[in-house]
């Protein structure tokens, strides 16, 4: 009797996840309906105009979608050489040594720093450097936020990649060494191809992080509601425009911000799904 009740409680708790997810999707969709009814789904996504002035009110998400993809991919690009090096350092060259565990502790600590502190650091310490480099006059923009974002996702990309690189079986590597290969050749021909799915999945997940990162980007990107003119330009991401304008929003603007949240949610969900599928393929090999 007691067991039955207990099992039911567990089942009910698991059911909560289902209800929670359904509720989230329902709330996001129902609260963005006003916007989609007004502009149509494609009309909203493909419009780069964002004008909250009551008289000329018009809302489109394109500027922010472009801004998000721009910053996230550029950040990913910057992050790759560093996180891959950390992964090789910890998972291959110095696997199991004290140095490696020190390096991974340091990188793990980086993951613990809150987004807003990254934003502060970016504003006070990185921005002057960006200005000195002559990227743009104020320092704010895609360039600055991508650099800070890249640092923020290094721990995510590197810890997963480390795991997959260190999982490459030793007897495989010894087989290659016994044929006369150097360490670099073993890494390139054996370790990387064997761990490739896992490494790719790690970077997809890191990309997902970068897409949804809010505070640091909000503080550094310049917050202009236009398609960024380039790396030197300013802009807004989907997350940063919500953080910036949600507080004062109502009516159609509120609905449009929630619609942007829905799009962001869908994009990150797809990214996670892809990462999961890539990893599943790995476990089959």
């Amino acid at each position: 009797m007691k067991d039955k009740l207990f099992r039911f409680v567990l089942f009910f708790a698991a059911l909560m996840i289902l209800l929670l997810s359904a509720g989230i999707i329902y709330s996001l969709v129902s609260r963005s309906l006003d916007t989609f009814n007004e502009y149509g789904v494609w009309g909203f996504i493909s419009n780069a105009e964002w004008d909250p002035r009551k008289a000329t009110e018009e809302y489109g998400a394109l500027s922010f979608i472009v801004g998000t993809l721009y910053t996230a991919f550029f950040a990913l690009l910057i992050c790759i050489p560093f996180s891959l090096s950390v992964a090789l350092f910890n998972g291959e060259y110095f696997k199991g040594t004290k140095v490696a565990s020190a390096v991974s502790s340091v990188v793990d600590l980086l993951a613990g720093i809150p987004s807003i502190v990254f934003g502060l650091w970016g504003f006070y310490s990185v921005r002057p450097i960006v200005i000195a480099l002559g990227v743009n006059a104020q320092g704010f923009g895609i360039f600055l936020s991508s650099i800070v974002l890249a640092i923020m996702i290094i721990p995510y990309a590197s810890s997963l990649s480390t795991e997959f690189i260190s999982m490459v079986p030793n007897n495989m590597k010894e087989g290659a060494y016994s044929l006369g290969a150097t360490r670099l050749e073993v890494i390139r021909r054996i370790s990387f191809p064997t761990a490739s799915s896992g490494i790719v999945a790690a970077y997809i997940l890191a990309l997902g992080r970068a897409l949804g990162e809010t505070m640091a980007v909000t503080m550094l990107i310049g917050n202009t509601d236009r398609i960024p003119s380039g790396l030197r330009g300013t802009g807004n991401t989907m997350a940063s425009v919500i953080a910036n304008q949600f507080g004062e929003a109502d009516g159609l603007k509120l609905s449009s911000l929630i619609a942007i949240g829905l799009i962001l949610f869908i994009i990150t969900a797809i990214i996670n799904l892809i990462a999961k599928m890539v990893m599943k393929r790995l476990s089959k090999v």
Binding site: L20, I24, T214, I242, I258
Partner: peptide, 12 residues
């Protein structure tokens, strides 16, 4: 849920 951006959770 784990991959959901925190700002979207704020909206919810």
């Amino acid at each position: 849920l784990q991959g959901m951006p925190s700002i979207v959770i704020g909206i919810i």
